[in-house]
Write a protein that binds this DNA or RNA. Sequence first.
DNA 1: ACAAAAGTGTTGAACGTACACCCATGC
DNA 2: GCATGGGTGTACGTTCAACACTTTTGT
Lengths: 232, 232
Amino acid sequence: MLKGAFTYEYERPAVTVDCVVFALDQEDLKVMLIQRDLPPFQGMWALPGGFVQMQESLEEAAMRELREETGLERLFLEQLYTFGDVGRDPRDRVITVAYYALVNLEGHAVRASSDARRAAWFPVDDPPPLAFDHEKIFRTALKRLQGKVRYEPIGFELLPEKFTLTELQKVYERILGRDLDKRNWRKKILKTGLLLALDEIQQDVSHRAARLYRFDHRKYRQLSKKGFLFEI
Amino acid sequence: MLKGAFTYEYERPAVTVDCVVFALDQEDLKVMLIQRDLPPFQGMWALPGGFVQMQESLEEAAMRELREETGLERLFLEQLYTFGDVGRDPRDRVITVAYYALVNLEGHAVRASSDARRAAWFPVDDPPPLAFDHEKIFRTALKRLQGKVRYEPIGFELLPEKFTLTELQKVYERILGRDLDKRNWRKKILKTGLLLALDEIQQDVSHRAARLYRFDHRKYRQLSKKGFLFEI
DNA sequence: ACAAAAGTGTTGAACGTACACCCATGC
DNA sequence: GCATGGGTGTACGTTCAACACTTTTGT
């Protein structure tokens, strides 16, 4: 411990990053939480996160914390909002830059090792009580996800690279919380031209196997530079 | 000066707020800038802003800085993004929570006094070179404004309380950077039901006077709670 | 009387929505 | 052969885009 190692003319707040990580399993949209093993809020669930180091950017800090606390890597990560009210941490003035992330569970089983031993997924519509103001951060992230999914193609981030149209439809239905018409939705999503039909079908299903598609990131980047707007 | 007054176990970044303030005059969409009178970047133009104090929230800090540096008060203010790359300030690790603001120039002449003596408005499509990474912050704010104006009724914040439909149309044309069809646009904006036609007309114009309207904030709050989406 | 901006409707094309049946496969 | 989800088209209503002239007022 380096007591008093750093001195400043003016007092400075602490800066942390917290991450709201979403994933889909067969039933639900889920959020990842960590059980705290130190006070304050010892034993309560909280968003993964921690202090920003002096030599790393905010996004680097968010990715590092995710790696250390949950074992997750290479996921969609975007800045959400910065929470800086006085008194949101009982110990000290803390400013938290929140990020939200999307992962597909197939590629990313949460490591049960090391720091991750207390990480778990919870359904977004029935989360446990959260430490600090993390419920506010979580609800902000959920609202952002629901808004953003409608005009940016981020639903794909919750699926493996190859997926069926029905799987993609279910992603949208779960995030938006309502059912979509199968025929209309297929017409719409295919008309964007952003899905590549593969010469592959599902394996190991006990009914007619569906065609697999993948999202054409290249084409999306081209189109969005030219002012194209993805909309569902 | 309190040298070494505050000590920490771990080194902490400095936290500042910067504001991108937009206004419309007769010609252009404008942004407010401050000329720096200290190094680094002495003499260059920069966004108004400064350090967050320990006993104020981020939004309070942004409002305080605006008041001190530009004399502006009671304006639309919303958090934009947090910039925290290493090396964005040559002196120290600085994390900046950026806000953007909209004002109507009629009610808010920029005070020429005290700290504001070096504040000035610049057209958004021809700004001077900016200090630090403020050009990046400014461009982020402009993009956000252009995106947000399409699905949230913030265009009104750039106008006085009572305005004509043509004035409102010009706000949207200037922000979006393209012309709108007068008849189609009027139909659309009136169909939202969010404009209250007043029993008043323009004064002191040398042609037929237009009817005045005001935005129905109450009704908008009601509708948006019920899931209504404003769209232009 | 002229200049300047206000105000107003119609039509055709594109898009969104509602809706039901046959198909392929595994068991 | 039956259960399971895959895959497909049409008709109707709504919305969007293009387009030009008359009205009011001040000078």
